[in-house]
């Protein structure tokens, strides 16, 4: 793998392979010594133009457990805040010998621009770009779903026949975008659920169904209910009347939690707004995989860094 920019580029086999490598990585994390020598001498730069402590430390843990050297570059208080361009930052990292750049950027497509620019030779991992994609989140989500369904027999398997309801602000969600392509590649079915203002109008050709009625969707017995965070900036821009109404119609409250089928799991990429899109009981219930998702995130990111930085590089 040269870069990981989007899950849309991943074939079914490639996706299963990444998840299988993530299983191998997860296995190593149960040992007494969790650190592997695999990426010794490699340099991974976490280039974060947006604040995201959770994603950054997950990548940092992944890289360190593979023995890579990690440089954290945060835009705040750096040359970027003094007006340095993406181009100059990239060329600086190139000269410092970065082997992989994990980039989080508020501008959709910034990782593509970096990968296509010729400014830098490093492998690029998209750690979330604007409202475009967040591929490692989708990988850790698929990994989590697969483990819930198949446990220790997960290796080699896809997600055929699984139905995933993704609920909330689909329009602005990079998590939803990365999930829909990966879930489709793995044979799962996706239903987008949310208010019509927050579900895109133009989904021609997308492997996703659309529902504006959470209760109707839950009644169909989805295997997975994935709740998305409602960003505070949506509250004041007429996407919905107010948080209470949102919560009543599209929140996973205790009453809806009680109606879920026995095997339905509840996911959330975090950070959660408890009491808005998800109730505290739902978040903390045995169905919730929120904490597993965090742990699996490290394994999935180890797999991505490993595949990017070890072995033959295809240009």
């Amino acid at each position: 793998m040269r870069h990981l920019l989007s899950t849309r580029d991943l074939s079914r086999d490639a996706a299963i392979h990444i998840l299988d490598v993530a299983e191998d990585m997860a296995d190593t994390q149960t040992r007494e010594v969790r650190k592997l020598p695999t990426l010794r001498g490699k340099t991974v730069v976490n280039l974060f133009f947006e604040d995201s402590t959770r994603t950054r430390i997950s990548f940092e843990a992944a890289a360190k457990r593979l023995s890579a050297d990690v440089i954290n570059f945060s835009a705040k208080g750096s040359s970027v805040s003094k007006g340095e361009s993406l181009k100059d930052t990239a060329q600086t990292l190139e000269e410092m010998g970065a082997d992989a750049v994990v980039i989080r950027h508020g501008a959709s497509g910034a990782p593509h621009t970096l990968a296509a620019s010729g400014w830098i030779d490093a492998g690029i991992v998209n750690a979330g770009d604007g409202t475009h994609e967040h591929p490692t989140q989708a990988l850790l989500d698929a990994f989590t779903i697969r483990r819930c369904l198949h446990g220790s027999a997960s290796r080699g398997r896809a997600l055929d026949g699984v139905t995933v309801a993704i609920v909330g602000d689909i329009l602005h969600s990079r998590v939803a975008r990365s999930n829909v392509w990966l879930l489709s590649a793995l044979g799962a079915r996706t239903v987008f659920v949310g208010p019509p203002t927050l579900v895109p109008n133009h989904l021609e050709g997308w492997p996703a169904e659309v529902s504006f009625d959470l209760d109707a969707t839950l009644a169909t017995g989805p295997d997975v209910v994935m709740m998305l965070r409602i960003q505070s900036e949506r509250m004041n821009d007429a996407f919905f009347p107010n948080p209470r109404e949102y919560s009543r119609r599209w929140g996973l409250d205790d009453e809806r939690l009680a109606r879920l089928g026995p095997d339905t799991i509840v996911m959330h990429p975090g950070p959660m707004n408890r009491g808005l899109e998800i109730s505290s009981r739902a978040a903390d219930s045995p169905r919730s995989t929120v904490r597993e998702q965090v742990a699996n995130g490290v394994s999935a990111r180890m797999a991505v860094l490993y595949l990017l930085l070890s072995g033959e590089r295809e240009d």
Binding site: R8, S108, G109, D129, G130, T131, H132, E133, R174, R177, P200, N201, H202, L203, E204, G205, W206
Partner: peptide
């Protein structure tokens, strides 16, 4: 707004 609102803008995550 960043580009024409349509399927492509939705896919690319660019405001329509």
């Amino acid at each position: 707004a960043q580009m024409n609102e349509g399927e492509v803008s939705t896919r690319l995550g660019l405001a329509g």
